Amino acid sequence: MLMSHSGRPAKLHYMANGFRVLASGDHVVCAVTGDKIPLDHLRYWSVARQEPYASAEISVRAELDR
């Protein structure tokens, strides 16, 4: 039987040019807004803080707030 990871958050390791999946899932949660981000839509993250962001604006806001 195939196992579905639908609805389950993935655990990722963020790198400069991509990410590595550490635990399977279909989304991650934005570190600022708490919104679910499907893995195929994930474009913004912080390598230093190892956290994902839902948009470029949110990633800039996170950087300025720190």
Rank of each mutant, 00 (worst) to 15 (best):
M1A: 13
M1L: 12
M3N: 12
M3P: 09
S4N: 06
S4G: 06
H5F: 13
H5P: 08
H5Y: 13
S6E: 13
S6Y: 10
G7L: 00
G7N: 00
R8A: 06
R8Y: 08
R8F: 09
R8P: 08
R8Q: 13
A10W: 00
A10R: 01
K11P: 07
K11D: 08
L12P: 09
L12S: 05
L12E: 01
L12A: 00
L12Q: 03
H13K: 15
H13F: 11
H13M: 12
M15R: 15
M15D: 14
M15N: 13
M15T: 12
A16M: 10
N17T: 10
G18W: 00
G18T: 00
G18F: 04
G18M: 00
R20W: 07
R20L: 10
V21F: 06
V21A: 01
L22C: 07
A23E: 14
A23W: 09
S24H: 14
G25A: 02
G25S: 00
G25L: 00
G25W: 01
D26G: 01
D26N: 08
D26Y: 02
H27R: 02
V28Q: 03
V28G: 06
V29R: 09
C30H: 05
C30T: 02
V32M: 12
V32Q: 14
T33S: 15
T33I: 00
G34Y: 03
G34Q: 03
D35R: 14
D35V: 07
K36L: 05
K36M: 04
I37K: 06
I37F: 02
P38K: 05
P38N: 04
L39Y: 03
L39K: 03
L39M: 02
L39W: 02
D40H: 15
D40E: 04
H41C: 09
L42I: 02
R43A: 04
Y44N: 13
Y44A: 05
Y44F: 15
S46F: 00
S46A: 03
S46C: 07
S46G: 05
V47G: 04
A48D: 13
R49F: 10
Q50E: 04
E51S: 11
P52W: 01
Y53S: 10
Y53G: 04
Y53K: 06
Y53I: 00
A54R: 14
S55P: 08
S55L: 01
S55W: 00
A56T: 05
A56D: 11
A56E: 14
A56L: 12
E57H: 13
I58F: 07
I58L: 06
I58D: 13
S59P: 11
S59R: 15
S59A: 15
S59I: 01
V60T: 08
V60S: 11
R61H: 11
A62P: 13
A62T: 01
E63H: 15
L64R: 15
L64D: 06
D65P: 09
D65S: 15
D65I: 12
R66I: 05
R66D: 12
R66S: 13
R66A: 09
